[in-house]
Every structure is written in structure tokens, then in C-alpha cells.
Computed example of a mutant assay.
Amino acid sequence: MIEQLSDIPAQYLALDDYKKDFQLHFWKIDASWKLERQLTFKEPTTPSWLAMAEGDWDESLRLASEMRPGRRAHQGELDRCGIVQRRIRFVSEPPTPYLQWELHLLMMWAELGEEIRILPVEAAAPRETRTPLPEVVVLGHHSASPVMYDIQYTDGVLSGARKFTDADLIDVCRREIIEYWQTGEDLLRYFPRKIADLPRPAPQGV
């Protein structure tokens, strides 16, 4: 069903509206599930990404490390609220420069408590008969009022989301994400084996 989301009517939220709506629902949930399929994005408001894109890998990693305290505080608040975050991240081998950078950040998130698993991008192929799988976030696991977002990008930059509230649809999509997650490899094992010792990525331009 995930692969059919683009064909299903949904409420479109521009970026600011999406961020507000996400925050409105997020702190009321018990768990979130995220599916990340695309291998390259742009994050021009993130200094660490900008340094990577400009070719300064050492500075990119230094700036990334400065994000840890804020993320630790965020994880602490999640723990206090009883919210569990789970993510399945599809990867290519070798990784794209963006993916190599993102996995360094996600490794920190995983060390702090987010439950992240990895699958090769080939695992998505059976459902990708027309287009790649969308980027999807489901808020709520046992909630009576779950919310799901099909996250939208313009030229690789986050631009908004399509919002779904149909509980039956969300339940099907959640179960599909969980199936991927259950078969993935824990990032805490994957990262040292596949990412930690890679050469620095090539500059990407901004």
C-alpha cells in the first residue's frame, strides 16, 4: 500500500504548516515509525550538511558532533514521555555522499536511543514497479487517532507533506514499515562494518 500513497487523496501541508501539525500530534503518541528511501537530499539549513557539500568533511563531522547535546536532551524528553522512535533506512553500497553524512548523524541518534535499522535499497524493488517508495512517517502505534505523512521534497529540499488520517490505511502502511524494520540490520552493527572507515565523500556543491 505504501507504494500507492501518491494515488490516494490527502491533505497537502506546506512546510510551516507541516512542522506545526507534526509537533501538534507528535508529543501525544506512544511511538513513531519512519521509512527513508531516497538516497540523496539537501539540508541547506544544517551547517554540518553545508560543510560536507562544500567538501570540508572534518568540519562537517565536528559540526555534527555539536548536535549531540541537543539530541540527547530531545531523547531525554522522549523517554520521559514514553515515546519510542523507530526508523528503517534504505541504503546503497557504496553510499551516496548524502547518505554517508546522514548515517554519521543517525549513528549518534541510535547511540542515544532511537531504534534504527538498515536495509539495502534492493529490498524495496518488489514494490517499486512505478516509482521509488515515498518518505513516510507514521505517528502513533496503539493510538486511536494515528496520523501519517507522505513527506514532500522540491529539488531535494524538504517542502511539506501530504497528511493522512484514515486509521485503516495507516494501519496497513504501518505494518508494511514494520515488516521492513523487522528484517533490517541494527545501525549500531551496520555502521562500524560499512560506514565508519569509508574515505571522505566528494564535494557536492550547494
Rank of each mutant, 00 (worst) to 15 (best):
P132A: 02
V147W: 01
A125P: 00
A125M: 03
Q152M: 09
M148T: 07
S143N: 10
K194G: 00
R174W: 05
L35K: 00
M1W: 11
T154S: 09
H25V: 02
W57N: 11
L13R: 05
P134A: 02
A51V: 11
D155R: 15
K194A: 09
I116Y: 04
L99P: 09
A144D: 13
L15E: 14
P201T: 08
D56H: 12
L133T: 06
C81M: 11
R37L: 11
A144L: 13
S32W: 01
P97G: 11
E128L: 03
L119S: 09
D150G: 05
Q182K: 07
P94A: 00
P69W: 05
E36P: 04
L112T: 08
S60N: 08
E135Q: 03
W33H: 10
E77S: 09
E176R: 00
A10L: 02
E185L: 08
G160K: 06
E115P: 00
L119R: 07
Q75S: 08
R86M: 13
T131V: 10
S145G: 03
G82I: 01
R162N: 15
S159M: 01
P203M: 13
L5R: 03
P134E: 04
A196I: 03
R130P: 00
D21L: 06
P44M: 11
L106R: 14
D30C: 05
K163S: 07
P97K: 12
E93Q: 14
V138G: 10
D168H: 09
D186E: 15
G140C: 01
I29P: 01
S48F: 07
Y98Q: 05
Y153K: 00
R62S: 10
Y12M: 11
D58H: 06
D17H: 07
E114C: 04
G70C: 06
I195W: 05
P126T: 00
I151L: 11
I118W: 15
